[in-house]
Amino acid sequence: MIVGKQKPLPEIREMIADYGNILILGCGTCATVCFAGGEREVDILASSLGIAAKLEGKERVTTKHTVKRQCEWEFLDEIEEKVKQADAVLSLGCGVGVQAIAERFPEIPVLPGLDTLFMGMPVEEGVWVERCVGCGNCILNQTGGICPIARCPKGLINGPCGGYRDGKCEVDPTRDCAWVLIYERLKKMGRLDMLHTSQPLKDYSKMGHPRSITR
């Protein structure tokens, strides 16, 4: 899933400063799951901005809505009337969602309420970690199911580097070295032999933007 984080409230307040009528739009999929922009967060943000506006002595109308997924135009049809009434849409979806709204409703400003961060997963309640960078050329079959591109700050495909200490990364000593994890996993699998072969140079052209696929 895509993981994002709500922008700090002062930044959001600055972003909406010029608009009197805001549609706060939640996303019912990834942004809900990572607690950044589901229906509950829409409520809390609307209330917070309401208090802020009153304190600033501003007249501001906020309308709330949450769609199933902001990144599908068909799901955006239901907000057409609300968009027409608003001066701006404050999206609590990921960057894809913000752009989908902008494309579906070209005449209205769409403001990102989230910073979209990564593709990842929760490892405990309330903690999400990055697991994939979408390199377009997956080698997880050769690295024990642990991605060195996403999990090694240097993205080494033939690791580890010389900087790891006691199994920890030199860039962030609180984090496990991805290549030590790969070694341990291959050892458990009885496939340390896979480390005898060097990975060929990675074709990073497959990460070139923008990418698309056709079914």
Binding site: P8, L9, S48, A52, L55
Partner: peptide
């Protein structure tokens, strides 16, 4: 935290 952020 929100009360601080909004200035209350």
């Amino acid at each position: 935290k929100i009360l601080d952020d909004v200035g209350l």
